[in-house]
Amino acid sequence: MYAFNYLKAQSVADAKSKVAAATDGKLLAGGQTLIAAMKLRLAAPSDLIDLGGVAELRGVKAGNGELTIGAMTTHADVAGSADVKRRIPALADLAGQIGDRMVRHMGTLGGSIANNDPAADYPAGLVGLGAAVVTDRRTIDADAFFTGMYETALEPGEIITAVRFPVPQRAAYAKFANPASRYALVGVFVAQTSGGVRVAVTGAGPVVFRVSALEAALTKRFVPEAVEGIAIDANGLNADMHAGAEYRAHLITVMTRRAVEVANA
């Protein structure tokens, strides 16, 4: 790892000014991806601004039909939160499936979505639930937040402070995990909301996406059989040593069906 300056942020405002003052500053959340990338010298920031001590970024708040989760809330805390388990159990379940136990103790919601790994779990949860990403300067709809592989709508220096999740009527996340990495080979988040059914897919393409054919079928009838026979176009899907594009396309329908089964259970 190359040397860098380490700065501890006391607040969001303090982090903002420290990032602005750095030549090539990066925010450090849980570091479960960033530190690994720095060890491989894939990333070499001049300054790391650690958000670990910023209390205002942590915690779950239950409000009017929604949950607001601070950006620095760890996956373990989301998975174990009584509020999340009661209001959006599918989201607690998703958080509990990220990485492994040790990674979940360090990794954070904000860090995960800012990194936007194409096989990460949270992007499916945010898009599936129609969440809103709150930053130090604006609110961004999840549908507009994840713009490409490892790319987001965040501007340089913009800091995610929280995510607001509307509480759905019911929802579930079904993940076909890579047996070694536990990243999603294909993960499907299905939510039945007042505005219809949302189906968000991670792991299958370069970035999380929704599948309108599945959404339309499930909005008509929210049962597993509703998606039978809906073929997903493999064009543009990921293909690697773990799974080809056709297999991933097939898994999207399979995991959607499983998610609906769980949501209805």
């Binding site: 380490y6 501890k8 570091g31 373990a76 990674v103 103790h105 360090m106």
Partner: peptide, 21 residues
């Protein structure tokens, strides 16, 4: 996970964490 230690009672991978954290 060979590097697992506890920080404030929680298991973490110490090869993926800075000492200053």
């Amino acid at each position: 996970g060979a590097c697992t230690v506890h920080v404030d009672g929680q298991a973490v991978k110490s090869c993926n964490m800075l000492a200053v954290q």
